[in-house]
């Protein structure tokens, strides 16, 4: 599943159309078209459908990113695709670099993906078995949309229960964290290469800009702490707003000044 978008570009009608389409297909599988349904025989196709959906919705950003589909790293494809699958990574992130470290990380990522796929498979099989068991052999195919929804609600309950039973486990949590950390490490590699490239053109690197930014921030803090010195430009009354009373300003200045001696100077963060 690909989410239709996010933020200001999110289109609920597209998300609805995709979900309704899947619901429609599921109802066809359940015999809503009039065909006789042998529920037990549906366990395998149902599990297969759910597993595919899990792979697409929860893991697709990994593959998309690996294919370079998430320009700049974080893409809208991640919106419903799971936090851990949304980090920028993959060959696109290390294009042309052929660094051993990056390749090592990519290999590790593929291993982790395989482990994740194993979890999706287990969840899907458990969900389908649970659904068939709860349905009972006497159930008839849905004849109205309302009946179809009842069946669907039962399916969702079974699927979410199976999902929760796995994703709460410690091994699953560790795997997800490792996926996130590995993808973050890949992004860090990508940044490192970009820094080298920028430096070779004689342009300021991100680390250098970071260092300047940190110095500027520190200077602002020191100036604010001096009291009579020019104010830091950051906190300003909004245009047209009533200026705060003097007492409030003194308090604010005191607060701003207080951390100056305590706060450590920040160097570039890598």
């Amino acid at each position: 599943m690909q989410n239709p978008g996010s933020g200001s570009t999110f289109k609920p009608e597209e998300a609805y159309a995709a979900a309704a389409g899947r619901f429609f297909e599921m109802m066809k599988t359940f015999g809503m078209s009039g065909a006789t349904t042998d529920w037990k025989s549906l366990a395998a196709p149902l599990a297969s459908q759910f597993e595919r959906w899990l792979q697409m919705s929860q893991a697709s950003p990994w593959f998309k990113a690996a294919a370079g589909d998430t320009p700049g790293g974080f893409g809208p494809a991640s919106a419903a695709g799971g936090f851990f699958g949304a980090l920028p990574l993959g060959p696109a992130a290390v294009q042309g670099a052929q660094m051993p470290r990056a390749l090592e990380l990519l290999g590790r990522l593929a291993q982790l993906q395989g482990q994740l796929a194993g979890h999706w498979s287990q969840i899907a099989a458990t969900a389908a078995q649970r659904f068939i068991a709860r349905l009972g052999s006497a159930a008839a195919p849905p004849a109205t949309p309302q009946q179809a929804l009842q069946l669907y609600e039962l399916w969702v309950n079974c699927a979410e229960e199976a999902y929760a039973a796995t994703v709460h486990r410690e091994d699953f949590s560790r795997l997800q964290a490792e996926l996130a950390n590995t993808s973050a490490a890949l992004l860090a590699e990508q940044r490192q290469q970009a820094e080298a490239l920028v430096r070779s053109f004689g342009l300021p690197t991100r680390n250098e800009v970071d260092a300047l930014h940190a110095q500027l921030q520190e200077l602002r803090r020191v100036l604010a702490g001096l009291g009579t010195a020019p104010r830091a430009p950051a906190p300003q009354p909004a245009p047209g707003a009533t200026p705060p009373a003097k007492r409030g300003r003194k308090r604010a200045a005191g607060r701003r000044g207080a951390p100056a001696g305590r706060k450590r100077a920040r160097g570039p963060r890598r």
Binding site: G7, Y152, E160
Partner: peptide
């Protein structure tokens, strides 16, 4: 990015939060 955190929240109950409400 906000999308990433939102993905995290939706992944807590993916079927309910990304499918069932539309159905």
């Amino acid at each position: 990015p906000g999308e990433l955190l939102n993905g995290l929240f939706l992944a807590l109950m993916p079927l309910r939060l990304t499918q069932q409400k539309y159905v």
